[in-house]
Amino acid sequence: MTITQLQYVLAVAEHHNFTLAAEKSFVTQPTLSMQIQKLEEELGVQVFDRTKKPIQLTEVGKKIVEQARNIVNESHRIKDIVDQQKGFVGGEFKLGIIPTITPTLLPMFLKNFVNKYPKINLKIEEQTTETIIQNLHEGHLDAAIAATPLGNDNIKERVLYYEPFVAYLPQGHELNKKEKLNIEDINTDELLLLEDGHCFRNSVINLCKNKNKLKDEKFFLETGSFETMIKLTDEGLGMTLLPYLHTLDIKGEQRKQLRFFEEPSPAREVSLIYHKSELKLHIIDALRDVIASVIRGAIAFHNVQIISPMPDKKAS
Rank of each mutant, 00 (worst) to 15 (best):
Q7N: 09
V9I: 11
A11G: 06
L20P: 00
P30E: 07
M34D: 04
Q35E: 10
I36K: 01
V45R: 02
F48G: 04
F48R: 02
P54F: 09
Q56W: 05
T58W: 06
V60W: 05
Q67A: 15
Q67V: 14
I71N: 01
E74G: 09
S75E: 14
S75V: 08
I78D: 03
D83R: 14
Q85G: 15
K86H: 10
G87N: 10
F88E: 04
G96T: 05
I97N: 02
P99T: 11
T102D: 14
T104K: 08
L105I: 14
F113P: 00
V114S: 08
N115T: 09
K119H: 13
N135C: 06
K156T: 14
V159F: 01
V159K: 12
L175A: 03
K178P: 02
D185W: 12
D185F: 13
D185A: 13
N187I: 08
E195N: 10
S203D: 04
V204H: 07
N210I: 01
N212Q: 09
K218M: 08
G224S: 14
M229R: 07
E235C: 04
M239I: 15
Y244V: 01
L248N: 04
G252W: 07
Q254T: 05
Q257Y: 10
L258V: 03
V270D: 00
V270L: 06
H275Q: 05
H275G: 03
L279A: 15
K280V: 11
I283M: 11
I284P: 04
A286P: 07
I295L: 15
A298P: 01
A300T: 08
F301S: 06
I306R: 03
M310V: 15
D312H: 12
